[in-house]
Computed example of a mutant assay.
Amino acid sequence: MFISPMLLETAAAPFSDSRYIFEPKIDGHRLIYSQQNGIVRLFTRHNNDCTRQYPEISSVTFPHDIVLDGEIACVDPTTGVSDFESVMSRFQAKKADKIARLVAELPATFVVFDVLSYKGEDLRSLPLMERKSILASLTLPSPSFGVVPYIEGAGEALFEQAEARGMEGVVAKRKESTYVSRRSASWQKVINWTYADVFITGYRKTEFGWLAGVPNESGKMRPSGIIELGATPTHKKAFYGVSKTLITGEDREYVYVEPRIRARVKMRNWTKAGLLRSPVFTEFIV
C-alpha cells in the first residue's frame, strides 16, 4: 500500500523552538515501506516501486502489517554520514547480479522516522509524538533498519553538529502535527549549504541554464555543472547583456562565452566527479 508522503517546507535559517522536535536530515532518498498480508513492497516518494533494489530491506518482515516512512541511506564507515552518490548507485541498479554485488559493497539502511499504519490501523491522524512513541516500541527486524534520533527544542545546536559533521542539515517537526500527504509548514528542513565561486562559461539555448566552470590545478577551466535555479529576471538580463561581447562559439545546445563572469552558488556538496550538486545562484562577484 503506497501512501503519498508528507513533504517539507524550507526554513530560512536554523531555529530553536520547544514546540518542535529536530532530526538530522539523512542524505538519501525517501522510502515508504509497506508490509501487507506479509508481503513487503518499497516505494519512492513518487510511487515508483523499488522493492527489488533493496533485498536486505524487502526480504525481512515485522510480526504485523505496517507502513513506515523513512530514508534509504548508505553510510560511509569513515564518517558515519550517508553518501548520496552511493544511494543513487543502489537505486539505479536493475540487474540482479549487480544488485547482489552492491548489497555487499554498498549496504543500504532504512532509517525510519514515522509509522503511518500498524496492525491495520491508520495512524496518520495521531499527533507526531504519539506516532513516535509507537515507532520506538517496535522491534526492528534486522540491522538494515534504524530509527532516526531526535531532540526537543534545540534546533540550532543540532544544526551546528550537522555542519561540523558535513551532514545535509536538520528537519524540524511540530510535535502535534498529523501526517498529511502534501507539503506542510509543520515539517521544515534547514539545509547545510556549501558555497562555491565559479565562472559562467556558457548558457543553454532553450530552457534556462548557465554552464559553470572552475580552474583546475594547471589553471585551465574545467566544467563543473549547470546552474538552473536562483537567478532572477534582473540577474538574467544583466548576464545576457554582458555576455554578448564574450561569445566564443556555439553548438546545438549551448552558446559558449569567455570565463569572465563570476558567480557565487550554494549547493549540497561537490560530487566525486567534481561537479556542483544542485547548485543555486546567489550573486554575481564583481
Score class of each variant (00 low, 15 high):
92 Q>S: 11
278 S>D: 12
170 V>G: 00
26 I>S: 10
227 I>M: 08
239 F>M: 02
186 S>V: 00
223 P>W: 08
216 N>C: 05
27 D>H: 11
111 V>D: 09
55 P>L: 13
26 I>F: 09
236 K>C: 10
250 E>V: 02
42 L>K: 01
96 A>K: 09
128 L>V: 04
282 T>H: 03
219 G>M: 08
162 A>W: 00
18 S>W: 13
240 Y>V: 02
196 A>L: 02
108 A>D: 06
81 V>K: 01
209 G>L: 04
242 V>R: 15
114 D>W: 08
251 D>V: 02
145 F>T: 06
105 E>T: 09
136 A>R: 14
49 D>Y: 03
273 A>Q: 15
248 T>M: 11
283 E>H: 14
149 P>A: 09
241 G>T: 10
60 V>G: 05
166 G>R: 06
1 M>P: 04
153 G>F: 07
215 P>G: 01
33 Y>S: 02
100 A>T: 05
47 N>W: 02
203 Y>H: 15
116 L>S: 06
64 H>N: 14
22 F>Q: 09
31 L>Y: 03
127 P>F: 12
220 K>Y: 11
134 I>K: 15
13 A>M: 08
70 G>C: 10
268 R>G: 03
124 R>V: 04
239 F>G: 00
109 T>D: 03
241 G>W: 03
264 R>Y: 01
165 R>V: 01
50 C>R: 06
85 E>Y: 11
266 K>E: 09
82 S>I: 03
126 L>R: 14
61 T>S: 14
74 C>W: 04
118 Y>K: 02
32 I>P: 03
18 S>C: 10
79 T>E: 12
70 G>T: 08
195 Y>N: 06
134 I>A: 11
16 S>N: 07
72 I>Q: 01
8 L>P: 00
242 V>E: 15
98 K>C: 02
76 D>T: 02
125 S>F: 05
4 S>I: 01
